[in-house]
């Protein structure tokens, strides 16, 4: 037991250190706020430079014309690249969306077991995979098998990249649907698959669209896997057995050219690309992300 005298004695050992502790507290808060500012500066700088350098080259011709000959007076445009990126997004979604959504349904509705846990785990691992490895994989599977670089190989690589994102967000948003909806469906004697399609997917629609838009934003910026699959091209799409161009790839090529006109065009391409990506992200934010905070990992991810 501690007596009153002892307590008085103990209190003498307490230092009146409060002011120095509060100073430390203030210093830490200052440092931490400094960290936040440091992180914002690059974002500001990137957006500023893109607009400053990219806006002057914007024109109808820039957006629609094919690139001119390297080093020539007429730099042309990035038409084929925009076309290629849009086609790649559409085609990758054709595979990535249905497979990803079905996978997400499996994890949410039938995945409450060891197998489901394993899939969920590897899905997360695949989502964080270096995309260059996925590009090499698509090269080995499609390009080497078919014998030519093509939009098909690019589509395959990008679909693998978007798949785990969609699976994850589908699962998360299905889990947010109240259990009572399911119970109501089963109580009416409706088949499980019908409950899933007619009740669950409808209620989880906003989450699904979020996932799809975020995954599209992600693959729109992917560059590394395209080097091994679509190769790049100065012409518009001319067939499924021909190399095609894409926006990020075109920016990469332009940045590597030693001409100021090429650099300027690279910035122009970057402006278009960032507009696409930011529109998707900001759109998602304002349209659908009000359900945030449910522990869902609706994280925005960047292209590699």
């Amino acid at each position: 037991m501690i007596t009153i005298e002892q307590r008085a004695e103990f209190r003498k050992h307490f230092r009146n250190n409060i002011s120095s502790r509060l100073i430390t507290d203030k210093i830490v808060k200052g440092i931490v706020f400094g960290c936040v500012l440091l992180a914002i500066i690059p974002l500001g700088s990137i957006l500023l430079e893109i607009v400053r350098n990219g806006a002057p080259v914007l024109s109808i011709e820039f957006l629609t014309a094919p690139p001119g000959a390297v080093g020539s007076d007429d730099p042309g445009g990035i038409g084929p690249a925009i076309q290629g990126t849009l086609m790649l997004i559409g085609m990758s979604s054709l595979i990535g969306v249905p497979v990803g959504v079905l996978g997400g349904i499996f994890l949410s509705e039938y995945g409450n077991n060891k197998y489901g846990q394993m899939i969920r785990f590897f899905n997360d691992v695949l989502a964080e995979f270096p995309t260059i490895v996925i590009g090499l994989f698509a090269f080995a599977v499609i390009v080497l098998t078919l014998g030519y670089f093509s939009i098909v190989a690019g589509m395959f690589a990008l679909s693998v990249i978007m798949l785990p994102i969609i699976t994850r967000t589908t699962e998360e948003s299905l889990k947010l649907v109240p259990v009572t909806y399911r119970e109501a469906g089963y109580a009416l004697g409706i088949k499980r698959s019908v409950v899933i399609f007619r009740i669950l997917l409808t209620s989880a629609k906003s989450g699904l669209i979020t996932g799809i838009m975020l995954s599209i934003a992600r693959i729109a910026g992917e560059t590394a896997p395209l080097i091994f699959t679509i190769l790049g091209n100065s012409d518009f799409f001319s067939g499924f057995d021909q190399p095609v161009d894409a926006l990020p790839l075109r920016i990469y090529r332009l940045a590597n050219l030693p001409y100021d006109t090429a650099t300027a065009q690279g910035w122009g391409g970057a402006l278009i690309l960032i507009l696409i990506i930011l529109t998707l992200n900001v759109g998602v934010r304002y349209l659908f992300l009000r359900k945030r905070g449910g522990g869902g990992r609706f994280r925005i991810a960047a292209g590699g």
């Binding site: 501690i2 050992h13 307490f14 230092r15 502790r21």
Partner: peptide, 23 residues
């Protein structure tokens, strides 16, 4: 809480911990 308040003497700390656990 003792560490926060700058109690450095290990003996005193032992005494307080024991006393409080006894209480």
């Amino acid at each position: 809480g003792l560490k926060l308040n700058g109690v450095k003497d290990k003996k005193v700390m032992d005494q307080i911990v024991q006393g409080c656990l006894e209480m």
